[in-house]
Amino acid sequence: MPELTQKRPEFRNINAIKDLTTYRLPPAGWVSILHRVSGALMFLLLPLIVWLFDTSVSSEISHDVFQSAFSAGIGFVPGVLVKLVVLAIIWAYLHHLIAGLRHLYMDVNHAVSKEFGKSSALFTLVLSIGLTVVLGAKLFGLY
């Protein structure tokens, strides 16, 4: 008796070294992944954020400590590294905010199409990186 069953497709695990380097993620995928990364980064750096806020508003002396953290550093950490970490926090906040507003807009208006997803993702990436560059230039004293 001949078998009438069709051959089922075979799914294999992807090779992370070989396959992930050639896979092109769409802009909406990058925004989604970066939204999660920025949220995790803000959560992990929350103690630093709270310390920075506390020392900046407690008193004039603590505000001087806050300002010296950016020039002289904190302990063994140089000031440039402190500025880079704060720049990462700035990017994380801006990207998380803009990407979150993008997701809310899409949820409220049911604007789920491939074209809108791509254009809004590119807008999110350009805006968050552009604002980070502007605020980073201010942080590093370029203006």
Rank of each mutant, 00 (worst) to 15 (best):
M1Y: 11
E3V: 09
T5V: 15
Q6I: 13
Q6R: 13
K7M: 07
R8Y: 09
R8I: 05
E10L: 14
F11C: 07
N13M: 12
N13R: 12
N13H: 06
I14Q: 03
N15K: 03
N15W: 09
A16L: 11
K18L: 12
K18R: 15
T21P: 00
T21F: 14
T21M: 14
Y23T: 02
P26R: 00
P26G: 01
P27A: 03
A28W: 01
A28E: 13
G29F: 15
G29S: 10
G29A: 13
S32N: 15
S32T: 14
L34K: 04
H35M: 08
R36T: 10
V37F: 09
V37Q: 04
G39Q: 13
A40P: 00
L41Y: 08
F43L: 15
F43A: 14
L46R: 03
L48K: 00
I49A: 14
V50R: 09
V50F: 11
V50M: 11
W51L: 15
L52N: 10
L52H: 10
F53E: 10
T55K: 09
T55M: 13
S59Q: 02
E60Q: 14
S62T: 10
S62V: 02
Q67L: 15
S68M: 14
A69K: 01
A72D: 13
V77H: 03
P78K: 08
G79L: 13
V80S: 06
V80Y: 08
V80L: 15
V80M: 07
L81H: 03
L87E: 03
A88N: 02
A88F: 08
I89Q: 00
I89Y: 03
A92V: 06
A99G: 04
G100V: 01
G100F: 07
G100R: 07
R102H: 11
Y105R: 05
M106H: 01
M106N: 01
D107E: 08
N109Q: 08
H110Q: 12
H110P: 00
S113W: 02
K114F: 05
G117N: 07
K118I: 07
K118F: 10
K118V: 08
F123I: 09
T124I: 00
T124M: 05
L127C: 04
L127I: 04
T132N: 04
L135N: 04
G136Y: 12
A137R: 02
A137V: 00
K138S: 03
G141I: 06
L142K: 00
